[in-house]
């Protein structure tokens, strides 16, 4: 399996049955698409799915009351950060791992990701208030996708 490229981001919202409700892949603008995206898609899903175990281990542990978990899992160059809503919906973000030398940036990174998660959480709450959205169903709202896209652009493109 090829290792993932830096700069790729994969965001997924996961429901109560471990099913993905919403997937979003982001590329940095300067990135060229020389490597087909299809090769990564299943790997992204595998990594995110496997990271759920780590999220749940954190939830049952002493950190169980937290919402944001930074770098709970890691695969090759990817790091997984998670956010768990009060209704136990999980947001996962796969992002590239920083080198140890950039420790200053790493601290900043946690804030960036946290802000991103909270921005998406806000949109998600609004979506949940929509009477036509059923809990645990796939999110097909174009408006939501648009908003997540904006949040990615706003928060994560410097990541």
């Amino acid at each position: 399996m090829n290792s993932p490229q830096f700069g790729r981001l994969y965001f997924v919202i996961i429901g109560h049955r471990d099913q993905p409700l919403f997937e979003f892949e982001a590329l940095k603008q300067e990135e060229n698409l020389s490597i087909p995206r299809e090769d990564y898609r299943h790997l992204c899903q595998f990594v995110a799915h496997a990271a759920l175990d780590a999220v749940e281990a954190n939830l049952t542990g002493p950190t169980g009351t937290q919402m944001f978990f930074k770098n709970i899992d890691r695969f090759n160059e990817w790091s997984v950060s998670a956010f768990v809503t009060t209704s136990q919906i999980k947001f996962l973000l796969l992002h590239p791992v920083r080198d140890e030398s950039q420790s200053a940036l790493r601290k900043e990174e946690a804030d960036i990701i946290r802000n991103f998660f909270f921005a998406v959480y806000e949109h998600f709450i609004k979506l949940m208030l929509n009477p036509f959205y059923e809990l645990d169903s796939e999110i097909t709202s174009r408006g939501f996708r648009e908003k997540v896209h904006q949040s990615v652009k706003k928060h994560l493109l410097n990541l």
């Binding site: 799915h49 175990d53 749940e56 281990a57 049952t60």
Partner: peptide, 23 residues
């Protein structure tokens, strides 16, 4: 091993490892 972790059985990590093992 992930399936037998005493505190937290991790079937999803197990699945991930199986994919790599299968590969």
């Amino acid at each position: 091993c992930f399936l037998r972790l005493p505190q937290a059985q991790s079937p999803r990590r197990f699945a991930f490892q199986m994919i790599f093992a299968g590969f």
